[in-house]
Design a protein around this nucleic acid. Structure first.
Length: 271
DNA sequence: CCGGACGCCTGTCGGC
DNA sequence: TGCCGACAGGCGTCCG
């Protein structure tokens, strides 16, 4: 579920509660996520102060002096700050208890998320090493995007969802960005002109930063660290709006499957 | 190298 | 009411 705006919202939400706090205990109720939570992780984290909360793409990074916890929310994950003694609900797989009497609680019904540990530079971890540019960073623009798409014959929607091209763009924001750029999602990625790439890079930055400002998109499960939803869903132009009028021209929004994922677009506005 | 399909999981919803 | 298929914010892996 969570794309860059939801992960960044989570990062900002938890940071004030965990920064400088010491981990007093880690409770793993269900270690079987996408990959098993390493058995050593609880011992590695225990006693460590959390020095920084970072994000790379859709990965959250809890930095300590001894190493870094790498956390991914998968499709259905969320992190909340709770009182440490609040009874866990189903699918509350991990509690990272802090010396404040609260806990960082990982909830993930589908268990596509991950919680891993590295003693080394997390950016050198095999899951992060090959990631493309951060769309909200300074090294992402139309020229970078154009270069990343050049050799790709796949649909542009699939290309911008490929984390080697640019990180953080998932199924919702891919549809939304292509609508704003007036580009049909099936267009051949490598055939986009440089100006089209400039426009696309611009709207990717725009839609992601607007969504961050709204606390992300809540359609089903996503909640912020305080349990509240994000409010960007009301600003979606096409995603999950099949049959409803295009905000630009009024013709019904189309739903089609591209790469086994639902895509939403306007056949009149997007070419 | 690339593109495309497939799992991994659980929950929910719509149709019959 | 119950059952069954489709579908859901991701992504590594496998195959041609």
């Amino acid at each position: 579920m969570p794309e860059l705006p939801e992960v960044e919202t989570t990062r900002r939400g938890i940071a004030p509660h965990v920064l400088g706090r010491r981990v007093v205990e880690v409770i793993v109720r269900q270690p079987r996520l996408r990959w098993p939570i390493p058995e050593s992780l609880a011992g590695d984290l225990k006693g460590q102060p959390i020095e920084d909360v970072g994000r790379r793409g859709k990965y959250l990074l809890l930095h300590t002096g001894k190493g870094t916890a790498i956390l991914h929310l998968g499709m259905s994950g969320s992190l909340r700050i709770v009182d440490a003694d609040l009874a866990p609900r189903p699918h509350d797989h991990v509690d990272i208890r802090l010396d404040s009497g609260r806990a960082l609680r990982l909830h993930d019904p589908r268990r596509f998320g991950a919680l891993l540990w590295t003693r080394d530079d997390p950016l050198a971890h095999e899951l992060l090493r090959e990631l493309g540019p951060e769309p909200l960073g300074e090294d992402f623009d139309g020229d970078v995007l154009h270069a990343g798409l050049r050799a790709r014959r796949c649909a542009i929607k699939l290309a911008i969802m490929d984390s080697h091209v640019v990180v953080g763009v998932g199924n919702i924001y891919a549809s939304e960005a292509l609508f704003r750029a007036r580009i049909h999602p099936r267009r051949c990625a490598g055939a986009l002109s440089r100006p089209a790439c400039r426009r696309l890079a611009e709207v990717i930055r725009e839609v992601l930063s607007e969504a961050v400002a709204q606390g992300g998109t809540t359609l089903r499960d996503f909640v912020k660290e305080d349990g509240e939803p994000g409010y960007f869903a009301q600003h979606l132009n096409v995603y999950d709006r099949a049959g409803l009028p295009c905000p630009a021209c009024g013709k019904p929004v189309t739903r089609a499957v591209i790469g086994q994922r639902s895509s939403f677009y306007c056949t009149h506005c997007q070419r």
